[in-house]
């Protein structure tokens, strides 16, 4: 698996092409916005019956990343579940699968806006995790430093010689990392949206996910 290294607050971090973040020194793997159970929640609320394969697809990738890193700690950075009721309807095969992934590891569920409470699964449920010098929380706090967050599902568009290529991406600068969404049924918010531009420093960079993750300067609008 190809990866790319960068640093935040003096810590060396590794971005995986899948959109997971690896902190080698602490043997910690962080994934954000899994949105497990999304298709079930949409059906339940009277929407269309989307293909019910999103949870297993997400878990397959998580399992691969766990095997690759052999992580001791896993931090799910919020919006791990599409709402707090999805566990009730989750097929046993899938909840058992999550249990299996958790076995023998420290597991931290950070609360997100979609899952603002504890779920009936092992692991600690925290609103944020302090792991000096880094802080893990769902939504970035302007002005904070050494922060890893998710929530926005950032994506960037790189204009190449032949065409533009748009992919989920990590955004990072000297203060923070904003993680891409890891779940299968997730969309993206362009890095040029005001809320992301306001959060990131002018010299911020992006890591484009994919087979080979790549660092590029953060694409921005020219309005400032």
């Amino acid at each position: 698996m190809k990866t790319v290294d960068f640093s935040l607050a003096g810590v060396q971090l590794t971005a995986l092409g899948s959109g997971a973040l690896w902190w080698q020194d602490k043997r910690l793997l962080c994934v954000s916005d899994l949105h497990l159970g999304k298709s079930e929640r949409i059906s339940r609320r009277g929407g269309a019956a989307l293909p019910p394969y999103d949870t297993r697809d997400t878990l397959i990738r998580l399992e691969q990343d766990l095997r690759f890193t052999n992580a001791e700690t896993v931090v799910c950075l919020g919006d791990s579940f599409d709402d707090l009721d999805v566990l009730d309807a989750m097929p046993e095969s899938e909840s058992n699968w999550i249990n299996r992934l958790q076995a023998g590891r420290r597991w931290v569920w950070i609360e997100g806006n979609h899952d603002p409470g504890a779920v009936e699964l092992p692991g600690s449920h925290l609103s944020e995790l302090l792991q000096p010098p880094l802080t893990f929380r769902h939504i970035a706090k302007a002005g904070d430093s050494g922060e890893i967050s998710g929530h926005y599902h950032p994506k960037v568009r790189v204009q190449t010689r032949l065409r533009g290529i748009s992919r989920p991406a990590f955004l990072f600068d000297a203060d923070r990392v904003i993680m891409p969404a890891y779940g299968t049924y997730t969309g993206g918010l362009r890095s040029t949206e005001a809320v992301l531009e306001d959060l990131m420093r002018p010299e911020a960079k992006a890591i484009v996910t994919g087979q080979t993750p790549r660092i590029v300067p953060l694409p921005r609008t020219l309005r400032r």
């Binding site: 697809d57 049924y185 969309g187």
Partner: peptide, 17 residues
């Protein structure tokens, strides 16, 4: 747009499963 995801994802998922 982060709430809506592309129909390509649904296509890829169906193709796989």
């Amino acid at each position: 747009r982060q709430a809506t995801f592309s129909s390509d994802i649904l296509y890829d998922t169906l193709l796989k499963y």
